[in-house]
């Protein structure tokens, strides 16, 4: 095989990752006694066959893209932020808390800003622990995920529980704050644009500004960064906080666009899957968009697999997990920060 030109190698590896992922999924299905061909076809159909399917895929891809942009930024800056899940939850919590107080459509930017601030603040905790106390952000962001989860769990069972006290969930935020759904009866909402916008802004910032350059230098070589007079502490703070803000925004968008309230199982693991999204995108903010669509399609396809073939939920989950693993195995090489 001739050596691929430099510019094509990254996309080629991503495509190889997707191919390996499909093979892994097919192999699991095959082992479980299903014909993988028709089953994969069903998954593809559930994810892309028609406007409804496509809308569902994009709805799932939106939080994945926002979290994925955040994770990609952190990875670029050499910060292994695996806390997008917790940062997203904190963002959702802030959005609900603000959304329950403010009932006007004008407050929407404020609600989303508070979501981003909460996510960023949550990640900043980890950044501060790292620079002040030398705590690895891998540990601290993971721990903060648990704290965020149980905080939400307690709040929806206690102080923030709906007035009816029937189910562990908050009240809905005011209808004026809901993101518009175009293409009913699908759930496609305006948050898709926010995700695309965030990816574009992140791309522009990362590659065309001085602070973006500093971030990349720190990620590529901390020593070079220090030699060039770049403060590793401040840059690490910036990388993690921006990363958390993206994840927090994902939580806010998910609240206003889809769930409209908060409950324990708010995220089916978007924050964790975003790590795989960022790796599949080879840490490129724009690459995150197609990667997020791939994983959104996987989520929707797995549900479609259950509906159509009668594959049990557990097996559909295993297929999904193997696909993610294959993606990480192929695209994760030399890409995650050391």
């Amino acid at each position: 095989m001739a050596r691929l030109p430099e510019a094509l190698r990254a996309p080629a590896l991503s495509v190889a990752a997707v191919a390996a992922a499909l093979a892994a999924g097919a192999a699991v299905l095959r082992l479980a006694g299903y014909a993988p061909g028709p089953a994969l076809w069903v998954m593809a159909n559930a994810a892309f066959g028609g406007p409804f399917a496509l809308a569902d895929t994009l709805v799932k891809a939106t939080p994945l893209a926002l979290c994925g942009v955040g994770v990609a930024l952190a990875f670029r800056g050499g910060q292994f932020n695996i806390g997008a899940e917790g940062q997203m939850l904190m963002g959702a919590l802030a959005a609900v808390a603000a959304g329950l107080q403010l009932a006007s459509g004008w407050a929407m930017p404020l609600v989303l800003a508070s979501a981003a601030a909460a996510g960023g603040g949550w990640a900043f905790l980890a950044a501060w622990l790292k620079t002040a106390r030398g705590v690895s952000e891998v540990i601290s962001t993971l721990m903060l995920n648990f704290i965020a989860f149980w905080l939400v769990s307690w709040l929806v069972h206690g102080p923030l529980q709906e007035a009816a006290k029937s189910y562990p969930q908050t009240e809905m935020v005011a209808e004026a704050l809901w993101l518009g759904r175009w293409l009913p009866p699908t759930r496609l909402h305006a948050g898709v644009f926010v995700a695309v916008g965030a990816a574009l802004v992140a791309y522009g910032w990362l590659f065309f500004t001085a602070s973006g350059l500093r971030l990349r230098v720190l990620g590529d070589s901390p020593q070079a960064a220090r030699t060039a007079g770049i403060s590793p502490e401040r840059t690490a703070w910036l990388a993690l906080t921006l990363s958390g803000a993206c994840a927090g925004l994902a939580g806010g968008i998910e609240v206003l666009g889809v769930s409209r309230r908060l409950y324990e199982q708010f995220s089916p693991g978007y924050g964790y899957m975003a790590i795989a999204v960022a790796l599949l995108a080879r840490r490129h903010p724009l690459g995150v968009l197609p990667a997020a669509v791939c994983f959104g399609a996987l989520e929707v396809g797995a549900a479609g697999l259950q509906r159509a073939v009668g594959v049990s939920a557990g097996l559909a989950g295993v297929v999904e997990a193997f696909v993610v693993l294959a993606v990480v195995a192929v695209s994760g090489r030399r890409d995650a920060p050391a």
Binding site: G33, Y34, A35, P38, A39, W41, V42, M43, N45, A46, G49, G304, R307, A308, V309, G310
Partner: peptide, 11 residues
């Protein structure tokens, strides 16, 4: 293979 014709199911 399940009897529910997976091929046509998602259509």
């Amino acid at each position: 293979a399940p009897p529910s014709q997976p091929g046509s199911a998602g259509a």
